[in-house]
Simulated assay, not measured.
Amino acid sequence: MNQPLGRILVIDDEPQIHRFLGPALDAAGYQHHRADNGVQGLREIATWSPDVVILDLGLPDMDGKDVLVKARAFYDGPLLVLSARDKEGEKIEAFERGADDYVEKPFGIGELLARIKAALRHRSGPQPVQSKVSFGGVEVDLDLRYVTRDGEPVRLPPKEYALLTRLISGNGKVLTHKDLLVAVWGPAHAEDTQYLRVAIGQLRQKLEADPAAPAHIVTEPGIGYRLRR
C-alpha cells in the first residue's frame, strides 16, 4: 500500500462537503479525518496532528475565526479556510487570526487540491535559501540584486525590488496588503494601499507577458497578492 501524501483534517458541519471532499481526497492519495464542529476539530488537531487543516468559518458551536485563534495556540501547520463568507473584512480577519489560505464556496476540487499541495510544500519545513529564483521568463538573482526578463536586464527602483523579494519570500502564499505595506514602506504606511497598487502595477508592466492578465503576480481580491511561480 502506498503511503498517503498527507493527513488532511476537514472541519465542516455540512455533510455534503464531506461527501464531496472525502472521495476526492482519497483519489488524490490523501488520508483524511472529519470533524463536524469546532470543539471536535480542535480535539482532532491536538490528537491526530494533521499536515493540513481545512476549516469552515460557519460552525454550529463557535465561529471558525475563534477556532483559528485557539488552534494557533498549539498548532503551527497550514490552516486553509473554506467558507461561503465573501466579505473582504471576513477574509482579512481570518488571515490576521492565523489562516494561511482562503477558498470561497462554491469551489472547484482542482483549485482546492492545488492549495493543499502548496500548503504541504510549506509544511515540509524551511527550504534551502535560493540565490536565484525564476518564474515565466523572469530571473531574480537575490545575491546580486539583479533582475532579467527573457535575458534582458530589468531596472527596478528599491521599493519595487523590495516588494518583489517580499512576494518571493511568501513561497506562493497570499500576503495581505498590510503585510506588504509594512514590510516595504514601514508601519506608518500600513493603510496606504495606493502605494501598493501603483508598485504592483509597475512590477506587472515590467515582468508580466500580459500585465492586464497577470499570470504570476496574482491579486487575491480584498486581501493582497501572491507570487505564482
Rank of each mutant, 00 (worst) to 15 (best):
4 P>D: 09
4 P>M: 07
6 G>P: 12
8 I>P: 02
9 L>A: 14
9 L>M: 06
12 D>I: 02
16 Q>D: 15
17 I>N: 12
21 L>G: 00
21 L>K: 00
23 P>H: 07
26 D>E: 15
30 Y>E: 05
30 Y>T: 11
31 Q>H: 09
32 H>S: 06
34 R>W: 14
35 A>Y: 01
39 V>A: 07
42 L>A: 05
44 E>Y: 06
46 A>G: 12
48 W>H: 10
49 S>P: 03
49 S>H: 15
50 P>F: 01
50 P>H: 04
56 D>M: 11
60 P>L: 06
62 M>Q: 09
63 D>M: 03
63 D>S: 06
63 D>H: 13
65 K>P: 01
66 D>N: 03
66 D>F: 02
66 D>R: 05
68 L>H: 04
77 G>K: 05
78 P>Y: 01
79 L>F: 10
82 L>E: 02
84 A>T: 09
87 K>W: 05
88 E>P: 13
90 E>M: 09
93 E>V: 07
95 F>S: 01
96 E>C: 04
96 E>K: 15
99 A>S: 11
102 Y>W: 07
103 V>N: 05
103 V>Q: 11
106 P>R: 09
108 G>W: 03
109 I>M: 13
109 I>S: 13
112 L>R: 05
113 L>I: 14
114 A>D: 10
117 K>A: 14
120 L>V: 10
120 L>K: 13
121 R>D: 11
122 H>S: 09
123 R>P: 02
129 V>E: 08
132 K>E: 14
134 S>R: 15
137 G>D: 11
137 G>H: 08
138 V>E: 07
139 E>F: 01
140 V>S: 02
141 D>L: 07
143 D>S: 05
144 L>S: 15
146 Y>H: 15
146 Y>W: 15
147 V>G: 00
154 V>E: 01
155 R>H: 14
161 Y>H: 04
164 L>M: 07
165 T>L: 08
165 T>K: 03
167 L>G: 00
167 L>P: 01
169 S>Q: 09
170 G>N: 00
171 N>R: 08
171 N>C: 03
172 G>T: 02
172 G>I: 02
173 K>M: 06
174 V>T: 15
179 D>R: 14
179 D>E: 15
179 D>L: 13
180 L>Y: 14
183 A>D: 09
186 G>S: 10
188 A>Q: 05
190 A>G: 02
191 E>W: 08
193 T>W: 13
193 T>H: 06
194 Q>A: 03
198 V>K: 09
198 V>G: 06
198 V>I: 11
199 A>K: 02
204 R>G: 06
204 R>N: 14
205 Q>F: 07
206 K>V: 03
207 L>R: 00
208 E>A: 12
209 A>Y: 07
210 D>G: 05
213 A>T: 14
215 A>F: 03
217 I>N: 00
218 V>P: 02
219 T>R: 10
220 E>R: 14
223 I>S: 00
224 G>K: 00
224 G>R: 00
226 R>Y: 03
226 R>M: 02
226 R>V: 00
227 L>P: 03
